[in-house]
Design a binder for these strands. Sequence first.
DNA 1: CCTGATCGTTGCTATTGACAACGAACTATC
DNA 2: GATAGTTCGTTGTCAATAGCAACGATCAGG
Lengths: 167, 167
Amino acid sequence: MDNRIMGMLLREVARLHLQMQRTSIACCSGTTSTQCFILTELGRSGTLTLAELGRRLGLDKGWTSRAVDSMARAGLLLKSPSDIDRRTINISLSPAGEARYAELNQALNEHSGRVMRWIPDGDQQTVHVALRLLSEALKAEAASVPTAEKQEGICDDGIELSCCEPC
Amino acid sequence: MDNRIMGMLLREVARLHLQMQRTSIACCSGTTSTQCFILTELGRSGTLTLAELGRRLGLDKGWTSRAVDSMARAGLLLKSPSDIDRRTINISLSPAGEARYAELNQALNEHSGRVMRWIPDGDQQTVHVALRLLSEALKAEAASVPTAEKQEGICDDGIELSCCEPC
DNA sequence: CCTGATCGTTGCTATTGACAACGAACTATC
DNA sequence: GATAGTTCGTTGTCAATAGCAACGATCAGG
């Protein structure tokens, strides 16, 4: 399969989706896109520690701390210190956060429903399978490049990163 | 097909891809992700006017103006006033911009190539078809909601937007 | 007890992006 | 061809997004 076409398609889909999602969630409730990510991650995974949340979203811990803090002040999240490790804080959805999460999920699902309406019924199964494959592939690839910093172009599996001739 | 699963998958794929793309292009050349979008759009479409570029990327014209301006100062883009409409400015890639575009494309293609390696050969065609379908669907959906502002929930085609009960 | 690592917070900075206002230029209508 | 409305690009302002460095508190392992 040709990398160029595949890459362009993947980029285009990601860009278009992000763009529409932004308007889609901006429209409903005052939720910004980062808040959206945090809510959906917590909604899916339940209680998380701050560092873990940041890692899952691929965000800096400082930024995550501030974002969580502002959402906690807005009453959407609960921060409670952990008993077993007093460095960490358990972050979970408050009832208001749960409500916002449900609301958000509905808006996003309606959005993807509208997009899906443009795809013929017979092809929807194809898209479903493909998205699942892509999701797995992206996660696998992300996991295989854990912290490339010190490894000079070779990751765990010996797949070379080919990342940067010194431009 | 179930909207919930589809929506979650689509969101996850978009989020993961964006995240990895950010690191992928940050690594090679000092190109930021907006610059990346501008370069790839111009590389694909050739000369564009500023307003058209902004519309294609879904970005505010003010922000687009500034981004283009900084890239022009960096020598990546050329701005030349149009003859037929003296309000507009034609924006195109400079030779340096072309080079950066090629370089960028290669990095992005290598990235998607690495992702694709996690998908069995037999399924790659499926993914390819699905991405094409999704891309078309997203564009169609985006086009069908041109400027919903004044239309109160009904778009051109009579598809209701269902956007926002007053949360 | 000491060393190193991790966790969450905070200060600082840069990027990204929306919105509004503006003057210049175009278009259509009378 | 004067006028009103529209579009175009620029600029100012503001908020959201995000990374980095430093810090004190806490933990884990010798």
